[in-house]
Nucleic acid binder design. Structure first.
Length: 105
DNA sequence: TCCGTGACGCGAT
DNA sequence: CATCGCGCCACGG
């Protein structure tokens, strides 16, 4: 599962962002936003700063919040107050075969 | 095995 | 817009 999620996170391009929920759904886990978080914490080498909360808010706390925002702005992402204009910076995942089969039914 | 926890999400107040 | 509550879920104690 971590692998599926990590793979999705790795797809987010420079200058774009995605949300915990979106990543979870794209990976095939409709209610796995929390698992996305665990993956971010337990996997090194992921663009963790490109993952924000629903609505484009920085959900992390402490020093990390500052660093994340800084990194994103450095990549060109613009903040509107404490959030991001998602319609412009959210990266849309393209549905892959594995993701569909998992949400099968 | 039960229980608390948390970088979540969303609707209601 | 700020809060609250509830649902979700894998982990760790």
């Amino acid at each position: 599962m971590r692998a599926q999620i990590a793979a999705r996170i790795r797809q987010v391009p420079h200058g774009k962002v995605s949300t915990y929920g979106a990543v979870a759904r794209a990976a095939g886990f409709p209610n796995g936003a929390r698992q996305v978080v665990m993956t971010l914490n337990g996997t090194v080498g992921l663009p963790w700063h490109r993952i924000v909360g629903a609505g484009g808010e920085i959900k992390t706390r402490g020093d990390d919040a500052f660093e994340q925002r800084m990194r994103l702005e450095f990549e060109g992402v613009v903040f509107r107050g404490r959030r991001i204009n998602m319609s412009q910076f959210e990266y849309k995942f393209s549905r892959s075969k594995s993701a569909r089969s998992r949400e099968a039914r």
